[in-house]
Design a binder for these strands. Structure first.
Lengths: 191, 191
DNA sequence: CGGTTTATGTTTACGACGTAATCCAGTTTT
DNA sequence: AAAACTGGATTACGTCGTAAACATAAACCG
């Protein structure tokens, strides 16, 4: 607070004219970082495309602000944005042919990857990334590193979705073949 | 420190006879939590089994100590244990038929899931899990929830490995069919 | 045995932190 | 002109990690 005040050319306590507490400030910062995250787009007929789009937007938000990762993690699932994306994604799985229980499992698994991976990646970078350098070679290696990780994220997500795709086909082959008939007795669970 | 001292029946400053700093204490705590993590076992001929075993041990360590997650994340890849597991896992991919670059990508992707997922899960639980309750129904729901998430972790990891398995077969079919011949010109990259 | 290290604690104090309480000078509104 | 509001400064409190110095008992050694 004192440091922020100084950076704004103002005494620390003056900030409290605008903010009830430091926590509120951090909340607002997190919210602004997550503003760019887009839920899966229901207009897209391809569920892969929906999931990929949302996943990429989340990864981008994290990659743009690695220092915010601990704050995001601390707030965790209470964040309205993430909750909304979560719920919307759940619907994607159901519309892709999963029964509610399976949809839940798939969403947990994919969500774990999509959210967990950038969180971990950020801590991979954190030590080296923030100190700017004029050394061109160093900067080049860093961006190459970043690109490599982005590709790895895409690769892993793609392979995970591959696995899900064949699993969905395996569980509901009739829905894919003759495009009609009731769901083939999915596993029943108390929700 | 003061609180820990009180819990040990001792003044806060006495702790500094044994520890150089609070950071060192937290380092030791993290190390002890990660002691139970096992690297992939090279004796296992099945690379799926190797990866699964290591992944489960990591997930277990996190699940047993959810409060440590921020500390683990803060130390990130500097942790010797994680670095060792990381390197050992890399070898698994190469022995499974991946060229070095692909092995790196696969390890990044799987590592992101295996490490990221429990980190995220822990923050899902953190709010509710630590307050103990005598209400049997509440306790039951919580353990059911935990089990459900464990299954989701297994499901997601299994599907990801499924995807990897078919991708590996796709990239190196000769290695799988006639078990001989040189690797089919993998993508070359400066390491 | 007496004297000296060594191990274990305590006490006090410092600077940094978030922030509650108070006051103060312009500016706007009635 | 009087009242209310706005944006800001000051001071002070309690908490944190920990540096520095001091105390006390055990262990060791001639």
């Amino acid at each position: 607070m004192r440091a922020l005040g100084e950076r704004l050319g103002v005494e620390a306590m003056s900030l409290y004219r605008y903010l009830p507490s430091k926590a509120a400030l951090l909340d607002a910062a997190v919210e602004s970082v997550l503003a760019g995250v887009t839920p899966p787009d229901p207009a897209d007929p391809d569920w892969r495309g929906q999931v990929l789009g949302s996943a990429r937007s989340f990864r981008q938000a994290i990659a743009d602000h690695p220092r915010m990762v601990p704050l995001i993690q601390a707030r965790g699932p209470k964040l309205p944005k993430l909750e909304a994306v979560w719920r919307a994604s759940h619907l994607v799985w159901e519309s892709a042919g999963a029964d509610p229980y399976t949809a839940n499992q798939l969403q947990l698994a994919v969500g774990a990857y999509v959210i967990g991976a950038p969180l971990w990646e950020a801590s991979l970078d954190r030590d080296t990334a923030d100190e700017a350098t004029d050394e061109p070679a160093v900067a080049f290696v860093r961006t190459a590193e970043k690109l490599r990780r982005e590709l790895a994220f895409e690769l892993g997500l793609g392979l995970l979705l591959d696995g899900i795709e064949s699993e969905l086909k395996r569980r509901a082959p009739k829905l894919k073949c003759q495009e009609a008939g009731p769901a083939p007795t999915p596993v029943e669970m108390a929700s």
